[in-house]
């Protein structure tokens, strides 16, 4: 070992390994600023769609990027929650806050069940089991009566928030959705930078070692799975009220694929990446809609380019350039 004392400790002291609080503070302020002014420049419904998917992708990223587990069935939580939320608002006549809450709760419970079944598997097996379970939900959604089958649940009332704030106006609803997004986003941020998040990173880094230190790693992974499913549900439940519709699209496996795509394009394992990925993918779908059947092809090309040129995703590359975790 002649190369032994090459690493001069003083030179590396205080490098960018620790996330600097200030970077995050500034970026969060920018994010909030952009969210506040965006509806004056862009169509609010489009923005709400972006926010819902940004939250959905961030939830998946918590599991994929920080837990190291690729779920290929997250559409089940997103879509199932949107059905429950739509049903609660339309049939049970619940106010929007309770409708969203019931959708989120349903997704969390579903996450606990799926998680318990899948969590002991790893890699491709884990992905396959989550996919299979999600297909089960798709089948149930297609066949059962309360989801409306092919029609979905249509003209869901947006209702009156807390009994005082009618959500019929798009811009009003936008700020409610933005608040939900920020709450979910900050929750994920906090989880990642918590003692729990620290253990999660350790497990992703070297699971056998974490076990040998006495960590019951399955419990940590399961907890992450359930939280991720719950937040994905929150996003889906909110989306149902925005579009006043819950449909099969949201439980379809291609939705699971899309959210993985968003996460990868934006940067897996980065805080802001999935949101950026959601902006890119949703914008493409919206602004290239005139291309019709070509949209998936363009999307595919973008994905291939991403994988070939910047594997760490947009934010991942920026993070490497600026030498800070973003």
């Amino acid at each position: 070992m002649s190369a032994h004392d090459v690493a001069v400790p003083a030179a590396v002291e205080g490098d960018g390994a620790r996330p600097s609080g200030r970077t995050y503070g500034v970026l969060l302020a920018v994010l909030v600023g952009v969210i506040l002014v965006a509806p004056y420049f862009l169509y609010p419904v489009f923005l709400m769609k972006v926010l819902c998917f940004a939250l959905f992708a961030s939830a998946l990223n918590l599991l994929l990027g920080y837990g190291g587990l690729l779920s290929f069935g997250h559409a089940a939580f997103f879509g199932f929650a949107s059905y429950i939320s739509a049903h609660a608002a339309k049939v049970w006549g619940l106010p929007p806050e309770l409708a969203i809450l019931s959708g989120t709760a349903a997704a969390t419970v579903l996450g606990a069940v799926f998680g318990a079944l899948a969590i002991r598997r790893q890699g491709i097996y884990f992905a396959m089991i989550t996919l299979a379970l999600a297909q089960l939900i798709y089948f149930v959604s297609l066949q059962s009566e309360f989801t409306g089958g092919e029609d979905g649940i249509q003209s869901v009332p947006r209702g009156v928030l807390f009994g005082v704030l009618p959500l019929t106006d798009d811009r009003t609803l936008y700020y409610v959705v933005a608040t939900i997004f920020l709450a979910g986003f900050l929750l994920i941020f906090r989880i990642i930078h918590s003692p729990f998040g620290q253990v999660l990173r350790a497990i992703r880094d070297n699971e056998p070692r974490a076990i040998s230190l006495g960590y019951r790693t399955v419990q940590y992974k399961l907890a992450t799975f359930v939280i991720s499913a719950g937040i994905a549900g929150l996003a889906g439940a909110t989306k149902a009220l925005v579009f006043q519709l819950a449909s099969l699209t949201d439980v379809h496996w291609s939705m699971s694929g899309e959210v993985v795509l968003m996460t990868l394009v934006g940067g897996m394992g980065t805080i802001f990446g999935p949101a950026v990925g959601a902006i890119v993918v949703v914008s493409m779908q919206n602004y290239l809609a005139t291309l019709g059947a070509w949209v998936p092809i363009v999307q595919g090309i973008v994905f291939v380019v991403c994988v070939l040129l910047f594997r760490e995703g947009i934010i991942g590359v920026l993070s490497r350039w600026t030498k800070r975790p973003l």
Partner: peptide, 9 residues
């Protein structure tokens, strides 16, 4: 205290 996901690291 490794399960505390609501506290700052």
């Amino acid at each position: 205290d490794s399960f505390d996901f609501w506290r700052s690291e």
